[in-house]
């Protein structure tokens, strides 16, 4: 009985705090994405050739952990198959956050663009509640001062 009670409590806490954190994070993401829109992050490997650019590797990473509610529901989905919707919102937020962190670094370098942007993910949690790292990295292009002086 105690175990069932604790389990239900963890589910309720996971759901309530997970939803609250998710809403707050989404609001923050949308606001920051608007701010950062002036700095394009491009997947192409070929930088613009209109002028010379200094290049610098920039990256942003975030580690996300599921909660008991999401983990439990995703476990049940594994029985029947289908979209693991509880993790979709989690991964979506992590991807966007990692990109924003990468852009923040690029912005601090006065970059005009970030090219060759890629994502990598790796599972780092092996406990009962999974956790994952999402890393976004790319090549920041800064207008070359050397080239401008020539």
């Amino acid at each position: 009985m105690e175990q069932i009670g604790l389990f239900v409590l963890l589910l309720i806490v996971g759901y309530a705090f997970g939803r609250m954190a998710e809403r707050r994070h989404l609001k923050s993401l949308i606001a920051r994405e608007h701010e950062m829109n002036a700095l394009p992050a491009i997947a192409s490997r070929f930088p613009p050739t209109d002028r010379a650019y200094d290049q610098r590797l920039v990256s942003g990473s975030v580690v996300i952990a599921s909660d008991h509610f999401k983990t439990f529901v995703s476990g049940l989905i594994n029985v029947f198959g289908g979209r693991v919707t509880p993790f979709e919102s989690l991964i979506d937020r992590a991807r966007r956050e990692a990109l924003l962190r990468m852009k923040t670094e690029a912005q601090s370098l006065d970059a005009a663009y970030v090219f060759n942007v890629k994502y990598e993910t790796s599972r780092i949690g092996s406990g009962r509640v999974p956790a994952m790292e999402v890393l976004a990295y790319g090549t920041a292009l800064m207008a070359s001062r050397t080239a401008a002086g020539d």
């Binding site: 829109n37 992050a41 613009p48 919707t85 919102s89």
Partner: peptide
């Protein structure tokens, strides 16, 4: 010209309420 357009919200998310799917 390069730009990042803001994608519409929710395209990566399932539309079912979590408690309902639970």
């Amino acid at each position: 010209d390069y730009e990042n357009r803001q994608p519409p919200e929710g395209i990566n998310l399932g539309g079912v309420h979590p408690l309902r799917s639970f």
